[in-house]
């Protein structure tokens, strides 16, 4: 099995602290840039972009570090979005409880779908996750709680902890930024924990990990649930930001988009998916008047990335300068 995120061997394999510190620096730099970002762009657009960026990072945790390509991650993003929207609108929960409910819902869905799909290898895993996501899509289409094609609209943003009014876009943006940084830092900690190291070992050589006595399926399932939960956090936050939950969030095109973001930014890099998400969103924004050409261009980016740009943007930079980002 060839590796999924092609990367040159680290030049100083004996100095892991240098590797992790560049990643931490990258996260810190990103945090600073994002904190200043409302000076340059609309906070509402930025808040939406951060939700997708967190979604891409959660997806990357599974594919970049676990080597598992899920083709159905929209089911976690979308269903968490529905649960959070329902909780905030119908049950009248405050935003923090609504987001928590959506995140937990996605985690449970991840546990169920992961238990079904994780036993299958490689390409079967991708097809099974795609099919399960389609099942979730049809449930979302027909369930009375989701309002079919209309989706859940006019979700109240409410007050965070009863204190912070989220109706102001700038306030909302900084709350979303805090959630995003929490998610990204969690992923950083997961990847560099002993658990993350075993996960990477399974990605590199599963048979050997089994022979070393690791219960590979349990590790993979745990990674799947973590990734699903964080994707759910992104989706639930998005429901509060956009004040809606729609069928688009749970459709397979969203699963495809998150793969594209991660691929363009760099699979298996820490901050790559964030850049990928911003690049793809900016492209969609500028090309929104060109109708279906967006789809064609996204397809072309897929083809070009796979043929000659497999490391992605951040992956290329990190490979060129021999640093881990």
């Amino acid at each position: 099995m060839t590796d999924i995120a092609p990367r040159a061997p680290a030049p100083h394999a004996s100095a892991p602290s240098a590797k992790t510190s560049t990643e931490l620096l990258a996260i810190a730099g990103l945090a600073l840039a994002l904190a200043a970002a409302p000076l340059a762009a609309y906070p509402f657009f930025l808040a939406q972009a951060l939700c997708l960026a967190l979604f891409a990072c959660a997806f990357n945790l599974l594919v970049g570090f676990g080597g598992l390509l899920s083709f159905g991650h929209a089911m976690f993003y979308g269903s968490a979005s529905y649960v959070a929207a329902h909780a905030a609108k119908v049950w009248g929960l405050p935003p923090e409880a609504a987001i928590l409910a959506g995140t937990l819902g996605a985690g449970l869905l991840g546990l169920a779908s992961g238990a079904l799909s994780i036993r299958s290898q490689g390409i079967y895993f991708s097809m099974i996750t795609l099919a399960l996501a389609q099942l979730v899509y049809f449930i979302a289409l027909q369930s009375p709680y989701t309002h079919g094609e209309d989706g859940v609209q006019a979700v109240p943003r409410g007050k965070l902890f009863g204190l912070i009014d989220l109706s102001n876009d700038v306030t909302l943006y900084y709350v979303v930024l805090a959630i995003f940084l929490f998610g990204l830092f969690s992923i950083y900690r997961i990847v560099h924990s002993p658990f993350g190291t075993v996960l990477k070992a399974i990605r590199e050589n599963e048979t050997r990990a089994i022979s070393l006595g690791y219960r590979v399926d349990q590790y993979k399932l745990a990674a799947f649930v973590l990734s699903a939960t964080l994707a759910g956090l992104a989706g639930a936050t998005k429901a509060i930001v956009a004040q809606s939950a729609t069928l688009t969030d749970v459709h397979w095109t969203t699963s495809g988009e998150v793969i594209l973001m991660t691929l363009v930014g760099g699979m298996g890099t820490m901050v790559g998916p964030v850049f990928g998400a911003f690049i793809i969103l900016a492209m969609q924004n500028y090309l929104s008047t060109f109708g279906q050409w967006v789809m064609v261009i996204q397809g072309a980016i897929f083809v070009i990335s796979v043929l000659s740009f497999r490391r992605g943007l951040i992956g290329e930079i990190s490979n060129r300068f021999k640093i881990s980002l």
Binding site: F71, I123, I259, Q292, M295, V296, Q298, V303, V306
Partner: peptide, 28 residues
């Protein structure tokens, strides 16, 4: 043919991109 020897997922991603291109063109 250029994907030989790479992980299976790249074949899936490449053909997914092709599907988007073809369907997008026809939808236009």
């Amino acid at each position: 043919t250029r994907l030989q020897g790479l992980d299976h997922i790249y074949g899936l991603l490449l053909t997914f991109g092709l599907a988007l291109i073809i369907q997008g063109l026809f939808q236009n």
